[in-house]
């Protein structure tokens, strides 16, 4: 299995990571080597095997549908790169 430069370009875009043109080839080689090593999983017969969920049988717990916190606007915004008047300020996303 070979990961191509085009694959890396696509995956980088999907990952929202800018990758410069000269890094595409080395990354393709690295990913090819890692994915090649991972390929050995194809040897395992997994017919009829359930995917693992948890080691101890557990069902997802339910809680009452009630508000448990709130009124912490200051805390929510405390680490914002940019905020104004109680709002996050983000780049324009609608043309």
């Amino acid at each position: 299995m070979s990961v191509t430069k085009e694959d890396v370009r696509k995956v980088a875009r999907l990952s929202r990571i800018a990758v410069s043109e000269d890094r595409l080839e080395p990354l393709a080689n690295e990913l090819t080597s890692i994915m090649g090593w991972i390929e050995q999983l194809n040897e395992v017969d997994v017919d009829g095997v359930e995917p693992m969920t948890s080691v101890v049988d557990a069902t997802l717990p339910m809680r009452d549908d009630v508000v448990t916190d709130g009124n912490i606007q200051g805390q929510v915004l405390a680490n914002a790169p940019k905020s104004e008047d109680g709002f996050f300020v983000v780049p324009k996303s609608v043309e």
Binding site: V3, D7, S15, I17, A18, V19, L27, E30, M35
Partner: peptide
């Protein structure tokens, strides 16, 4: 943000994961 903020190993694993 993500290419500056994440180091090389993290970027590599994110790309494997996305792949």
């Amino acid at each position: 943000t993500r290419s500056e903020g994440f180091g090389a190993e993290v970027q590599r694993r994110l790309m494997i994961g996305t792949y």
